[in-house]
Design a binder for these strands. Structure first.
Lengths: 213, 213
DNA sequence: TGACATAAGTTAACGATGTTAAGTAAAGTC
DNA sequence: GACTTTACTTAACATCGTTAACTTATGTCA
């Protein structure tokens, strides 16, 4: 009986429609600028139809964020093959900046908005597949830093991979989030974002690696 | 005729009441968690009374932000006397971090939320007094960096004070904003914020200053 | 074939939001 | 004592996220 499968396929088609419409709106208008009615209108369904597929507005948005985290984790995974842990950390940083400048509205919700909600309910985990891509991405950064420490590349007082990873993360995050939140403040003579990102990564690594490097 | 003056005083007393109530609520609940009705309830006025003092909710919040920018600018000014531009930039950084950790909800609105609104209307400028404290604070950082460059303290390829200032700003901003947005994510083994801030400042300065220092 | 069940979608409504229009009542002015 | 001003209130509007109650199409099974 392929009936159930067909129905499931039909349902997930609507689900995909909702996600597509919501993605475009959220990217264009940001979280607060989008209403459930707007999403519904765009796909020519009633607003309540969405609630058959998503628990609420935040859930809908978090699903989109999850897709983006997957995308980010994907571009991270492409860099896993780089042997040199310093070069790898540098590439991770630039990939991160690229992602943030490409999807500023999603970056805003992923990294600039506190999410009190716990996302790791069993049902969500089942639908999303095992493992949290956001967690995986951090773990990859941490691991790369740990390798660098092990190789003696970092300053000898820097022994905690978490501390170094969090500092590097904060560095690139600071560049992106400041750009997103303050790019309209014209009283700052903003330098090009790539230049700022480059100086941040170069400067931080210069400061955290051993002098001899 | 001291009548006008008394009336103005009375009016500004109510204004102050609104600001006090709103400040407490915003700090506790964040921007979206506070409604105009809640503020009004707290001071036992009708919700519409607020609109006699503030254009709208965002205006009310921006006034509070302005007070906080003044406070930040104030603590910056206390550091103006430090002669060494490197030590001064270091102190500016720690003062900034202190501010962010002390008033996270205000920091969130001041530095983590895009404000499309132009705040520099003539009327606001008149009420607020000349000069934008946020602008002044950045200018002070920039000036301090410029002095350091002039003194030959920074790497010789770093000649643009804006670029260096924005990178330093992004560094400490990254630490604070990541803390605010992600401190609940327990899958990251967060190091203490002061340690992260210290490593960021030390690391960045090490990386941006001349090797000989 | 026809009663029943399921499930995806609808309409209508609830309570809360930011905000505004219209009215009120007290105070000051002439 | 009539008129204006002003700080405030009540009532309302449009919109929001969300839910309850319904319809209606589809599939199941006697």
């Amino acid at each position: 009986m392929g009936v159930l499968e067909r129905r499931e396929r039909e349902k997930s088609e609507v689900r995909e429609k909702i996600l597509d419409a919501a993605r475009e709106l959220f990217i264009r208008e940001g979280y607060e600028g989008v209403s459930m009615r707007m999403v519904a209108n765009k796909i020519e369904y009633s607003p309540t139809a969405i609630y058959g597929h998503f628990a609420d507005k935040e859930d809908l948005f978090l699903q989109l964020c999850h897709e983006d985290f997957l995308r980010l984790a994907g571009s991270f995974n492409q860099l896993a093959q780089i042997a040199d842990p310093i070069e790898r950390v540098r590439q991770l940083g630039t990939a991160y900046v690229e992602f943030g400048t490409k999807f500023p509205n999603h970056y805003r919700m992923m990294f600039m908005t506190p999410h009190p909600r716990v996302i790791d309910t069993p049902e969500i985990e089942e639908r999303m597949g095992k493992g949290n891509p956001e967690e995986d991405s951090y773990e990859m950064l941490r691991q790369t830093v740990a390798e660098g420490i092990q190789a003696g590349a970092y300053r000898k007082d820097l022994t905690d991979p978490d501390l170094v990873a969090q500092t590097l993360w904060a560095g690139v995050h600071g560049v992106i989030s400041l750009e997103i939140a303050k790019k309209e403040d014209n009283w700052v003579n903003w330098c090009p974002i790539d230049e700022r990102a480059r100086i941040m990564l170069d400067g931080l690594l210069h400061g955290l690696l051993r002098k001899e490097q």
